[in-house]
């Protein structure tokens, strides 16, 4: 990829995009028996429409907590947060996002297809429509043909793909992913990363992605949020401008290595504050 192409790519993007997630001065403190734990402190962040934002940092830096606050699974104790202009609670009630957890969390008594149609069932969508959408979602993650299988009959990677299909099935514009590939081996992870990128490029969804892998973060993202623990805070936000149809090959380019280096430096700086 030449510099010119990168520049062209940037030029094609619309000048002002809609903010999907808008966070200002957000903080979250857990009250425990051992005293308060400052999980998040003074977080400012804007995720725009079509962004692929990665949150990276050591464990305990609050990256999962931040994602859970966006998803209204945790409540912030200070600051402001809005999703599509409304509160996280309203956004959750509107089913504004699909959430992919660290583990597949498929229900063992439901077939793969019925797992994928679970959110649609809760949203009271008609049966024909449910099955049609499940077919489409399973095709997106290349799991068509496995509709009638049960979760335990699939490998770990296939189960996680099924859980992604489930998050895609109701076509929310925002996808929240919490270390979805953390438990998978390198080769499967590369493959799923490629698939995820294709999916993102095709559907123009906004993705917030938690990871602890630097190459994964750099490869996938348009924006990398580097976080540091105790208290959990953002120490760097790096914008990248690789094209949407990037391949795994970009990991060998100088641009890629430079960004990876910057991420690593950020992580190291966050750690040295701590010692």
């Amino acid at each position: 990829m030449t510099l010119k192409q990168v520049v062209n790519n940037v030029a094609e993007m619309p000048a002002s995009k809609k903010a999907v997630v808008d966070i200002k001065k957000l903080s979250l403190t857990f009250q425990t028996a051992d005293g308060p734990v400052y999980a998040l402190s003074d977080v400012d962040l804007t995720i725009e429409e079509g962004d692929f934002v990665s949150f990276i940092g050591p464990s305990g830096c609050g990256k999962t907590t931040l994602l859970r606050v966006i998803a209204d699974l945790e409540q912030a104790t200070g600051g402001d947060i809005s999703i599509n202009g409304v509160s996280p609670h309203e956004a959750r009630e509107q089913r504004a996002y699909g959430y992919v957890f660290q583990a597949p969390a498929l229900l063992p008594w439901r077939s793969i297809e019925r797992n994928v149609t679970l959110p649609l069932e809760i949203m009271e969508i008609s049966k024909e429509e449910r099955i049609k959408r499940a077919q489409e979602a399973l095709k997106l993650v290349e799991l068509n043909g496995f509709e009638k299988k049960f979760p335990w009959q699939l490998s770990g990677g296939m189960q996680q793909r099924a859980s992604i299909a489930r998050a895609l099935s109701f076509d929310a514009d925002l996808l929240l992913m919490d270390e979805p590939f953390g438990a998978l081996d390198e080769i499967v992870r590369d493959h799923l990363n490629e698939q995820l990128l294709k999916l993102w490029a095709r559907t123009n969804k906004t993705v917030a992605f938690v990871t602890h892998s630097i190459p994964e973060a750099v490869y996938l993202s348009t924006k990398i949020v580097v976080m540091s623990p105790r208290p959990g805070r953002i120490i760097d936000v790096i914008e990248t401008d690789f094209p949407k149809d990037r391949t795994l090959d970009i990991r060998e380019t100088p641009e890629f290595l430079e960004i990876a280096h910057r991420v690593r430096e950020g992580l190291r700086a966050g750690h040295s504050n701590d010692d």
Binding site: E93, R95, G98, F101, E121, I122
Partner: peptide, 21 residues
């Protein structure tokens, strides 16, 4: 499990829906 309950919460599933499903 907690994960499954969180999952149902992300779909804004109500008490009875979560109970039966």
């Amino acid at each position: 499990g907690k994960l499954e309950k969180d999952l149902m919460a992300t779909y804004a599933s109500g008490y009875w829906s979560t109970l039966f499903r």
